[in-house]
């Protein structure tokens, strides 16, 4: 167990290292770093001073080490737009994005598992066919388009839910959250549903396939032969086997939800780090972009690591040997 953990940790560190190198090459070696890192409105003197300050006159490997050291200490430069440290800006916006991502993942899991089970248990029923047709549509539609339709129907036509903003927030453990106030919840509803739909469609398909596979297994028939009630056969024997892929995918998808939050946040003017990224790209605020990329990569690596650990907890076959590649 610890051996597996150590190996995974080492891999994670390697991925982080590789990504920092890629970002560095993208910023320093491909483009002109002066354009990217120095405020375009600065005059000649400022530029010269900035070059010296940033060490851009040094050899590349030395610059990389400086970049790495800065990244490790959380210093990724200051925003051109506000002058605030880039990392601080991102961290400020992160709770809003995480709240949105977690709530949408929750929606996807809470709805996706029962719907997938239903479709898997009665594959020929009308409900199952409707669910599967819905999941194909959910897969095909781009997030932004579904979001637009949600706004049109629920905000413009019906007037039930607000189309933009985060609403009232209250502090929970020192972090401002929306889901504990009625107004915040109303603001959270549309973006969270919007972001959930793709993963809902994905989980429905996954659970359906898993259910159908499990139902055909001898161990399910054997569980029935023991005279177990159907609720226990499905709820324990089938579901526990499905949970392994579901948790893996749901965990890995949490990363892509954070990435796709960029679209949803822009659409619903949700003040998260995704919207900050788009704003920064439009303003050519490069230090913030670099900070966003490195932070999101770090989150991805941590999520992958966590999923691996949970995976090994759920599947006893992996837990001891760890031999399955």
């Amino acid at each position: 167990m610890t051996g597996v953990l150590l190996r995974r940790l080492l891999q994670s560190v390697l991925v982080l290292f590789a990504m920092s190198l890629l970002v560095f090459v993208g910023v320093y070696a491909i483009g002109n770093p002066v354009d990217i890192l120095v405020n375009p409105n600065a005059d000649q003197q400022d530029i010269a001073r900035a070059i010296a300050e940033l060490g851009l006159d040094r050899p590349l490997h030395e610059q990389y080490l400086r970049f790495l050291a800065g990244a490790l200490s959380g210093d990724l430069g200051r925003s051109f737009a506000t002058g605030a440290p880039a990392m601080e800006l991102i961290l400020e916006r992160m709770p809003a994005t995480l709240e949105l991502a977690c709530v949408s993942m929750l929606i996807a899991v809470v709805l996706g598992i029962p719907l997938g089970l239903l479709a898997g248990l009665r594959p020929k029923s009308r409900a199952a066919r409707a669910i599967m047709a819905g999941s194909i549509v959910g897969f095909s539609l781009p997030t932004f388009w579904v979001g637009l339709m949600l706004i049109m129907v629920f905000s413009v036509w019906l007037g039930w839910l607000p189309p933009t903003g985060r609403g009232d927030t209250v502090p929970l453990l020192g972090i401002e959250v929306s889901f504990l106030t009625p107004d915040g919840l109303a603001h959270l509803a549309l973006p969270a549903i919007n972001l959930a739909l793709f993963n809902l469609a994905l989980l429905v398909r996954l659970v359906r396939a898993g259910t159908r596979e499990a139902l055909a297994q001898d161990y399910v028939r054997y569980a029935r032969a023991k005279g177990l009630p159907e609720s226990r056969v499905i709820g324990v024997h089938v579901l526990k086997n499905i949970m392994v892929p579901v948790v893996t995918v749901a965990g890995l998808e949490l990363g892509s939800v954070i990435a796709f939050a960029v679209v949803t946040e822009t659409l619903f003017a949700w003040p998260g780090m995704g919207k900050l990224l788009i704003d920064s790209i439009n303003q050519l605020d490069r230090p913030v972009i670099v900070a966003y990329v490195l932070l999101v990569v770090l989150m991805f690596v941590l999520i992958n690591l966590a999923v691996d650990l949970v995976y090994s907890l759920l599947d006893p076959r992996v837990r001891r040997g760890g031999a399955r590649a």
Partner: peptide, 17 residues
């Protein structure tokens, strides 16, 4: 009435003790 199946590798649920 109880039953024992053919393949013991398949009759026990792999994720339950």
């Amino acid at each position: 009435i109880a039953m024992v199946f053919q393949d013991p590798m398949l009759t026990l649920n792999p994720v339950l003790r």
